[in-house]
Amino acid sequence: MPEMNIVQAVNSALLEEMQRDDRVILLGEDIGKNGGVFRCTEGLFEEFGPDRVIDTPLAESGIIGASIGMAFYGLRPVPEIQFLDFIYPAFDQIVSEAAKFRYRSGGEYPCQITIRSPYGGGIKGGHYHSQSTETYFAHTPGLKVVIPSAPYDTKGLLLSSIRDPDPVLFLEPKRIYRAGREEVPEGEFTIPLGEAKVVREGADVSIFAYGAMISQCTGAAEQAEEVGISCEVVDLRTLVPLDIDAVLDSVRKTGRVVIVYEATKFLGYGAEIAAILAEKAIESLEAPILRVAGLDTPFPYTHENLYLPDAGRILDAVEKVYSF
């Protein structure tokens, strides 16, 4: 089996799906000859030509709106938004249109598009190349939100997303695009949406996270182990729909919860998990639920490392809930 990093896993998924299904087409800024600013579409323009790998004008609303129309016509567009921070000209097309077509047509106009976009901090990108604003989208009924944390999952989840009958926002943790390689199958292979993955089993504290935060969480879990705290790290992988069973199973086992995300803490995805646990698992909880998240400020440049959750801050929270 070949070893791949996340960029290569994205590329491999796109290549194979385009070979398998000629309805799949890509649209985006700089994705053609340049292969994407992160090189996720490298070689695809040469392979499939300018009708299937389209360098668009600089207009996100155009990219997404046109993708929706193409989907109605029977194509399977996989548009790329260069950075999640630049998706807002298309916000209307995504939340008012793509997300609602199935519903407002009584099911007659499903909208099968998969929007890929790199998200998150850690690359010294300042306000607009760093944000983690998945919650705006997860808050919109009709839209699925998927965030992988490793190459293997990236490929399996991207293939499932492209084949999913609903619009999917597929967010790629750019900070770990090239962080490590692992074996990724070639050929037919999918991971179902809506299934979390326990990346590390533990008995004392459940840590829920996704994307680039997973490696920070496993790092914290290793350090916790040394002081005798056993952490379970659950990679949610799909934010919508959430794998509620995986979350409840883990909490029933540990009774203590830390939720980690790099978005702004206030009203971030962790707020929803905490609310769900308060509704469905209050009898299992043995400590307050803590969130370790980005600061409640815009994303900074010089001090991005202080803004972003790291293993130290996660460990601090783990110790707090453990010793409560």
């Binding site: 600089l58 921070d85 630049f86 807002y88 000209p89 010294k124 990108g125 300042g126 306000h127 607009y128 190349h129 815009p298 900074p300 440049y301 010089t302 001090h303």
Partner: peptide
């Protein structure tokens, strides 16, 4: 130190803070 390089701003110079979104 909040913005990435080249995102200049100055109230005195009436130079409105630079933004990345095109």
């Amino acid at each position: 130190g909040r913005q990435m390089p080249n995102h200049f701003t100055s109230r005195a110079a009436h130079f409105v803070p630079t933004s990345s979104p095109v």
